[in-house]
């Protein structure tokens, strides 16, 4: 009897928990959409500047999100450019070459790196800057490049782990096929193992891109500022969407700016959700596209 009661209340509680979580999530997103939905439009991005002029860099955009969007895109591109080759190569080493105690040691290191809070990664980027500043040139300060390096470090363990698990989960029969036909280890990796895990690795890369796009703590320590316009080079400071949102939350001067903040939040959600959905779709589809032809 008591048992039935426990079981029943557990069912009730579980449903309530699921409902509460769904409601909380939908309320937050709905609130954002309701507040910022009206601000969405060309105006939000380019302000009063003509879009074409802005895109061709003929005119600066002062009252739109254009510099922040470009900053975020540059951040993503830069950090992934650094992280992808390093992460995949290290992942291949972990899965295909590394054995025994060395492997245990390395995976522990990468686990720690994966668990390190992003603000610590930002702090490391900042200390690197201070170090360079003191040792080499007083010209060096926080910049787009430092942010890209730090963000690359942030997603590196993730890429390593994705590549490693993808390679390790390949069917042993497929793994043996190419060597039995006279393939070298490298040939096997390049021609069979990597193509076979392309969808997992691909979706891992996309998810890592999402982390680069959303992270605020790293960039606020390494060079993101509220108003910098478009970055002139990788050595200058820059704007970025997440930092803009943070900045607006405490420094907004009027309802217009606040609305732009909500608009930025919606854009960032769209970007991250889009990346996430692409990654999920990729897990199912990419293999079909690349290999069935």
């Amino acid at each position: 009897m008591i048992r039935r009661l426990i079981e029943g209340s557990l069912i009730l509680f579980s449903w309530a928990a699921g409902l509460l979580l769904t409601l909380a999530f939908l309320t937050l997103v709905g609130f954002l959409l309701q507040k910022g939905g009206t601000s969405l439009g060309v105006n939000l991005i380019f302000g009063d500047t003509a879009p074409l002029d802005a895109l061709l860099l003929r005119q600066q955009v002062f009252d739109g999100l254009f510099p922040a969007i470009i900053g975020t895109l540059l951040l993503i591109a830069g950090s992934m450019l650094i992280a992808i080759p390093l992460g995949i190569a290290a992942g291949i080493y972990m899965a295909e070459y590394c054995r025994g105690r060395v492997k245990t040691f390395f995976s522990l290191l990468f686990d720690i790196l994966a668990g390190v809070p992003s603000i610590i990664v930002g702090l490391a980027g900042l200390s690197l800057t201070i170090f360079l500043h003191r040792s080499f040139s007083a010209q060096i300060s926080t910049s787009l490049l430092i942010s890209c390096l730090s963000l690359a470090l942030l997603v590196l363990p993730y890429l390593i782990r994705t590549t490693q698990t993808a390679l390790e989960s390949i069917d042993p029969l497929i793994r043996m096929t190419a060597p039995a036909l006279g393939a070298s280890r490298l040939q096997n990796i390049i021609r069979v193992l990597l193509p076979n895990s392309i969808s997992e690795i691909g979706s891992g890369i996309i998810l890592a891109t999402g982390r680069c796009a959303e992270d605020t703590a790293v960039i606020m320590l390494t060079g993101a500022v509220a108003s910098a316009g478009l970055p002139r080079s990788i050595f200058s400071q820059y704007e970025a969407l997440p930092f803009y949102i943070y900045y607006i939350s405490s420094q907004y001067s009027g309802p217009d700016e606040l609305r732009r903040g909500f608009g930025a939040a919606i854009l960032l959600i769209l970007l991250c959700a889009g990346l996430l959905l692409t990654a999920l779709w990729m897990q199912r589809r990419l293999k079909t596209i690349l290999l069935y032809r």
Partner: peptide, 19 residues
């Protein structure tokens, strides 16, 4: 590949050392 893994490992240690 080994170099890539060692680099990544060193970076983990470097973060700690900087701090």
């Amino acid at each position: 590949f080994l170099t890539a893994a060692v680099c990544s490992g060193l970076l983990t240690a470097a973060v700690f050392l900087f701090l």
